[in-house]
């Protein structure tokens, strides 16, 4: 179960990095990318948070 959760968290981080990279590549669009940048950053943050919880759970096992 922990492995599945870790894969999902990894996928979240990957999605966040992809969105962030695409947004940063389209900076010429200006203000329009701001919401996407925050979305990408939030996905990475959630993924990292989930991974840290999984690591804590593994340490306690």
């Amino acid at each position: 179960m922990l492995a599945v959760r870790a894969v999902l968290a990894g996928a979240m981080i990957l999605c966040g990095i992809l969105i962030l990279a695409r947004m940063l590549a389209s900076l010429s669009a200006g203000f329009a990318v701001l919401s996407g940048v925050v979305l990408g950053a939030a996905l990475i943050a959630l993924g990292v948070h989930r991974l840290s919880l999984i690591a804590r759970a593994r340490r306690m096992m």
């Binding site: 919401s35 996407g36 979305l39 939030a42 996905l43 959630l46 948070h49 989930r50 919880l53």
Partner: peptide, 20 residues
Amino acid sequence: PRTSVSLILTILIFALAYSN
């Protein structure tokens, strides 16, 4: 704190993703 941070980020992600 563990569950709240997950909750806050999940809701934020859904709201931003849906609106875009």
